[in-house]
């Protein structure tokens, strides 16, 4: 479906070899931040996907191999951009810290 699935970092049932996964945790002041919006932008800055972080701050994208930007939107905070490179068959872990 087109909506965001529950964001957990459990990889059970996913054939990682066929995916290029980018995942991580958003935190603020050192604590996991649920309800933040993480947008996946392609190498031209075009929006590709967006998920809401889980209660434990987790997010995950099934991207394609290549360079991406994660744009994190948190309540009452400026958007925060983080560069990331997705690799086929790999799970790239990227954590984002939103300024408190």
């Amino acid at each position: 479906m087109c909506g965001a699935p529950a964001q957990t970092l459990d990889l059970e049932g996913i054939d990682v070899a066929k995916e290029s996964i980018v995942q991580g945790t958003v935190s603020r002041g050192g604590s996991p931040l649920g309800g933040a919006y993480v947008r996946l932008l392609d190498s031209s800055g075009e929006f590709t996907a967006e998920v809401v972080t889980s209660a434990t701050g987790a997010f995950r994208f099934f991207a394609a191999p290549g360079d991406w930007t994660l744009r994190t939107l948190a309540p009452k905070a400026a958007p925060l951009d983080t560069a990331v490179t997705a690799v086929l068959g790999d799970v790239v872990e990227t954590d984002v810290e939103v300024p408190a």
Binding site: M1, C2, A4, P5, I14, K18, E19, L40, D42, E46, F47, T48, A49, E50, V51, R60, F61, F62, A63, A64
Partner: peptide, 18 residues
């Protein structure tokens, strides 16, 4: 859809299994 879905690179949005 996103450019990658349009081109045929992806079958579904990037936050979902392909």
């Amino acid at each position: 859809r996103s450019p990658d879905e349009f081109s045929g690179k992806l079958l579904a949005p990037a936050h979902l299994p392909q």
